[in-house]
Nucleic acid binder design. Sequence first.
DNA 1: AGCAGTCGCAACTTTAATTGTTACGACAAC
DNA 2: GTTGTCGTAACAATTAAAGTTGCGACTGCT
Lengths: 144, 144
Amino acid sequence: MSANSRLTIAAHALAWIGLYQRQGHEVATSEQIATSANTNPVVIRRLLGELRRAGLVESRRGVGAGWSLARELESMTLLDVYEAVEPGPLFAMHRTPPDQECVVGHGIQPVMQGIYEGIEETLRHELARVTLENVLRDVLAAPR
Amino acid sequence: MSANSRLTIAAHALAWIGLYQRQGHEVATSEQIATSANTNPVVIRRLLGELRRAGLVESRRGVGAGWSLARELESMTLLDVYEAVEPGPLFAMHRTPPDQECVVGHGIQPVMQGIYEGIEETLRHELARVTLENVLRDVLAAPR
DNA sequence: AGCAGTCGCAACTTTAATTGTTACGACAAC
DNA sequence: GTTGTCGTAACAATTAAAGTTGCGACTGCT
């Protein structure tokens, strides 16, 4: 499927900022995070911008600028990140509307919509069970 | 997100074939299904080809050729269709491997992998609860 | 044997989304 | 005012899915 890595990178960034702050630093720069995630600083800024809109992080400008957590990692779940960062639904309908004259073409979309909504609800439930604190803890527990 | 419609179109095709057979026809052609789904016959053939590999449908060639169900709709779940038709995982890792020198960069991938696998397992469970018979029934029950 | 209809499949184009890159103005600490 | 970093726009590159075209293979029919 058209898998994207937005959730992965966003979780990476949050864990990185959280760890860096625990090491006594005030803010993390998009360049530092980009180096760790092996990507471009602008990509990080874009993602963190969405997380800021969702109230998960804050940014400072000017000299000594950078990003910091707006809440404790314990209070952030992957669902918060997912909703901040993933725009559309998991499964799409037909690109072009099916034939409304056909019984199947007419009825299929509402039916699939309903099924998909139920599945996304379950997905959200699962994502809500994992906090970013869980993620960071497991990352630090990883074997060298 | 990079939402694709493969599962939707595949379900549409199966429901269409199932209904058409109940109306007394032997086989359905990719062109008929494509008309209902408002897409190209080759797209349908490609999808049905994957469903055939999974043992859900059969195809006949020559004059009077077309597609028929290999099993009853009651015995097909959306999970069968999903697995036949969706190649990759739901969420992707980093496009380029993160910095292995960094603690987070080193530990993040296995952690996220584990989380994602659990979520996909749940997703499969949900998909397995819906049969194509359910889908067709609901389609036929849709208001005009 | 030949015709016609449909699948099988390969090659290519189009479309759309994400990601990556470059550039530059805005801002704030010093 | 100098400097470092964000904010954001514009654009290119990459990727996956979907759409298109073409033609050979197969088979029921005449």
